[in-house]
Design a protein around this nucleic acid. Structure first.
Length: 433
RNA sequence: GGAGAGAUGGCUGAGUGGCCUAAAGCGCAGGUUUGCUAAACCUGUGAACGGGAAACUGUUCCGAGGGUUCGAAUCCCUCUCUCUCCGCCA
């Protein structure tokens, strides 16, 4: 959520930066300001009336105490309709506030000034690359072929169980998935200073609003219903990312300054309806309704937000380096950035069987955008309450990492070599038929 | 699912319609004094949203939402959560 005071004081700046996202959100600022103005006017009016009522009520109390019943009754008559006016004005003020917040909750974050201006993914600048595309002396297979020949994933039965976009990992495939999860958690916890948490996989609506998934992207989530009871629909959702619960751990709290920075690391499956997305329904593991992910969350003081973002990306890159996978880091341009983010780096790993780069990590500084929605603050030494920066990054997404891994390390004989860093977890150096 | 008990400031906890401007204690911060692994005393100590250049000031908040009343932490209704016991259950 954007700071309403900033919008009030510098509407042109806000309009201009929203416009750089190329989504037309700046058009709503005038309406927003009008509602804000209206709300404040009503508030001033109704608060004046309330002050008056409080004053007179106190006088009545005093008169009653002195048994001056008649005088008290006269005062009561005098203020009787004050209450009605207050109720009426309260309603209007609440309506103006609700309308204002409705717009505010749907406005995306402002891009940071260092973010490249652009319209689509084609305008995303490449920051750096690591390693290079593998040279094969044979025609590399796609992960789908490898998964079938090595019996790592049973695509047909996965679809039978839950429909397209759901995977049934089998034997070494299931073990590889589990080994990767363990490897990722251990790396971030022991080498990068994160604290492991294991959150609920079903989260409240408030959590979804807090991270900015809702209200705008409600169609992308799986809603949970208890049995056939439709009244239970709409309060709980399957998590689309561990960011939803983990970033909300300290919602509505005022943290002590010395508690910061907080680094959390969490494994969870991620559930995405992917309504209208291309690629769902096709075979493979690139875009699915359920995938595993290890997520990194940071809650930090604003002044270090962007240093922490660079470190966060580095933590995710380390994963690919240890797994000996070629990747590039790109910065998302203003037109391609997610709703809550002020600055985002994506890491794309090379998948030779696909002949393309796959997004396996997205690292963002959301600044105070989410903290405002969650009402998460920290108290400075001077006693001031401030919003922290909240950062999130995949460290990393699993299904696509799995794809890059088997496609990159495949051998001419159809087997897959396991990188040294992963061998202690998988307890083999090679997967073969 | 059934029965019962609860929810008050950072924490403990009093408060059953009007000086509640929420007692008291603990904690925390500052000060004074004595001197030494600290103690005593004094003062202060929440949040949100408004108004104001500022000093300051108004409103709201006692789990949440409604209601009664001139006036609600307090009375009424609905809901949520926590705890205890029973049932079911991995």
């Amino acid at each position: 959520m954007l700071d309403i005071k900033l919008i009030r004081e510098q509407p042109d700046l806000v309009r201009q930066r929203l416009a750089s996202r190329n989504a037309g959100d700046e058009a709503r600022i005038d309406e927003l300001l009008k509602l804000d103005e209206q709300r404040r006017k009503l508030l001033a009016e109704v608060e004046g009336l309330k002050a008056q009522r409080n004053r007179v009520s106190k006088e009545i109390g005093a008169l009653m105490g002195q048994k001056k019943i008649e005088e008290a009754e006269a005062k009561k008559k005098e203020t009787r309709d004050l209450g009605d006016k207050i109720t009426e004005l309260d309603k209007h003020a609440a309506a103006a506030e609700a309308a204002r917040d409705e717009i505010l909750l749907r406005l995306p974050n402002l891009p940071h000034e260092t973010v490249a201006v652009g319209k689509t993914a084609e305008d995303n600048p490449v920051m750096r690359t690591w390693g290079e595309k593998v040279n094969f002396s044979f025609k590399p297979k796609s992960h789908v072929e490898l998964c079938e020949s090595l019996k790592l994933v049973d695509f047909a039965r996965g679809a039978k169980l839950s429909g397209s976009g759901f995977l049934l990992y089998t034997n070494w495939g299931a073990r590889l998935e589990r080994a990767l999860i363990q490897f990722l958690l251990d790396l971030h916890i022991t080498q990068h200073g994160y604290t492991e948490v294991s959150p609920p996989y079903v989260v409240s609506r408030d959590c979804m609003v807090g991270v900015g998934q809702f209200p705008k992207f409600v169609d992308q989530a799986y809603a949970v219903r208890e049995g056939e009871d439709n009244s239970t629909l709409g309060s709980l959702y399957l998590l689309p990312t561990a960011e939803a619960p983990v970033a909300n751990i300290h919602r509505e709290e005022i943290l002590a300054e010395k508690q910061l920075p907080i680094y959390y690391c969490a494994y969870s499956p991620c559930f995405r309806a992917e309504a209208g997305a291309a690629g769902v329904g096709t075979r493979g593991m690139i875009r699915v309704h359920q995938f595993d992910k290890v997520e990194l969350i940071k809650i930090v003081k604003p002044e270090v937000g962007y240093d922490e973002l660079e470190k966060l990306v580095g933590n995710a890159e380390k994963v690919l380096q240890l797994l000996e996978l070629h990747y590039k880091v790109i910065q998302l341009c203003t037109g391609d950035m997610g709703f809550a983010s002020a600055k985002t780096y994506d890491i794309e790993v090379w998948a030779p069987g696909q002949g393309q780069y796959l997004e396996v990590s997205s690292c963002s500084n959301c600044e105070d955008f989410q903290a405002r929605r969650m009402s998460m603050r920290f108290k400075t030494e001077t006693g001031e309450n401030k919003f922290p920066h909240i950062l999130n990054g995949s460290g990393t997404a699993l299904a696509r990492l799995f794809v890059a891994l088997v496609e990159t390390h495949q051998q001419a004989d159809g087997s897959v070599l396991i990188p040294a860093a992963l061998q202690p977890y998988l307890k083999t150096d090679r997967i073969q038929a």
